[in-house]
Structure formats: structure tokens, C-alpha cells
Simulated scan of single mutants.
Amino acid sequence: MAVLTHTQNRPATTPAHYDTRLDQLLEAADEAPNDDAFLAAMTRIAGLVGQPLPASGYLAHCACSCYGAARCETWFDATAPGTRVIENADAGYNLARIQCPWCADQHPETA
């Protein structure tokens, strides 16, 4: 059983190149045309955020709007029990908006 802690997984302030690279990798995963491309992007994302890649191959960043501008920074297995899909991925894309289990339990959101 994986343990999920509700903590920030990266520094509060990050260098611009870090956020730019993360955005590029998230876009690559979202637009990946096949499983291999998706897994390759997810593997690089996991390394960048310092999290192990879950067995599902789908690492998600909590998409809730809690705490206003300082939203939840939790990275987690998107297929883990207790996660909440806020919004499914649009046609032709791969990444859904998903809440981490803690946020889903504390303040579930809808689209």
C-alpha cells in the first residue's frame, strides 16, 4: 500500500527553467500519441519532481483549487484509491484533472 502524505513535493519557489521544463513534459504527456510516448514523458516528470513513477505509469499533480493561489502541490498516482476525477481529458488528450486523495476527502470538487 502506498503512503500519500499531504506535503509540498518541491520548493515553494522554483527556477523558471524548472517550471518551463515541467510544463513542456506535461504537455508532451497530454498530447502523447501512444503509450510509449506517454510513459517516457511521465518518467521524465517523475524524475523532475522527485517522485517514483507509480506502477500505473500515471503520475498526477493535484488539480484542485484549494488554498487559492497556493494550491495543493501533491504529486500522486492518478489511479490510486481515493483520487477524484474533476474533469476527464478532452478528446485527443491524455491528462484528466484529478484531486489527490486528501483533497478529495477534505473538499471534493466538481468541474
Rank of each mutant, 00 (worst) to 15 (best):
P54L: 08
H107R: 07
G50A: 03
Q51E: 14
Q51A: 03
S56I: 05
I45H: 12
E73W: 08
A104E: 05
P54K: 09
P108N: 04
A69G: 08
G68R: 12
R84C: 02
L59V: 07
A41T: 01
Q24P: 00
G68W: 07
P81A: 05
T79G: 05
T5Q: 14
T14D: 04
A46V: 03
F38Y: 12
A91F: 11
A28G: 11
G82F: 04
A2M: 08
L59G: 13
E109W: 14
A41M: 00
Y18R: 11
G92K: 08
Y18Q: 10
A2K: 15
L59S: 14
L39Y: 11
I98G: 14
S56T: 13
D105P: 04
G47A: 05
Q99H: 08
T5K: 15
A12D: 13
R21N: 04
E87K: 15
Y67Q: 15
L39A: 14
F38V: 00
T20C: 00
I86C: 10
H61L: 14
R44A: 10
T74P: 03
T110I: 05
A29H: 13
P15Q: 14
Q51W: 01
G82C: 07
C64R: 15
A12V: 09
E27W: 04
E27H: 09
A63N: 14
T79S: 10
C103N: 05
Q106L: 09
H61I: 02
L26T: 01
D23T: 07
Y18G: 01
P108Q: 08
T110C: 04
A91Q: 14
L26Y: 08
W75S: 04
C66V: 12
A63Y: 05
A78N: 12
G68A: 05
G47R: 12
Q106A: 15
M42I: 02
A70G: 14
T74D: 02
G82T: 07
A37R: 15
P15S: 15
